[in-house]
């Protein structure tokens, strides 16, 4: 089948990408557009490392055809990372040793951001539930939950980065 052009908003910018049908969003981001912060651990929607935010909802970009985001608003880790310094969630992950090998971190950060945007003051159980679709082999999750709760405790209502 012929390639087609898909247009969507990526981190606040109108973006076009030409893809074969059923190309996944993760593949388009990483291989066509050079947005490599999004990681693919399993390529079958099991591990959560490919999580990006589409219209405010966390989605698994490794099993989502990019045609599905035509006209939609896609936010990746690049979109919440400021030009200088770190997003409050990134800073809290850093301070709480919530990163070891780092492979799950982009997905953990995006799913945590989606949570705090909807629920700025979650309980520990709500954080654990929110990240329960994301696998981490190194940290034992505990430091990740602590990092998210730290941001929630200091929340000023703007978790957004610059491309909301």
């Amino acid at each position: 089948m012929a390639s087609k052009i898909v247009t969507f908003t990526l981190n606040g910018r109108e973006t076009e990408v030409m893809v074969k049908p059923l190309t996944t969003l993760a593949k388009a981001l990483r291989e066509k557009l050079g947005f490599t912060a999004t990681k693919c651990g399993c390529y079958e929607g099991n591990c959560g490392s490919c999580t990006v935010i589409v219209n405010g909802e966390p989605v698994l970009s490794c099993i989502l055809p990019v045609e599905e985001v035509e006209g939609q608003n896609v936010l990746t880790l690049e979109g919440i990372t400021p030009a200088e310094g770190l997003h409050p969630l990134q800073q809290a992950f850093h301070e709480n040793f919530a990163i070891q090998c780092g492979f799950c971190s982009p997905g953990m950060l995006m799913v945590s951001k989606a949570l705090l945007d909807k629920n700025p003051h979650p309980t520990q159980a709500e954080v654990a539930e929110a990240i329960s679709g994301n696998l981490c082999r190194c940290t034992g999750y505990d430091p990740i939950i602590a990092a998210v709760l730290q941001v929630a405790a200091g929340s000023n209502g703007n978790q957004g980065g610059s491309h909301e």
Partner: peptide
């Protein structure tokens, strides 16, 4: 064949440590 069958602990499984 994948992480739906090879079950890893998830965040809600983490005990008090």
């Amino acid at each position: 064949g994948g992480f739906f069958e090879y079950i890893l602990p998830l965040a809600p499984d983490v005990p008090e440590m």
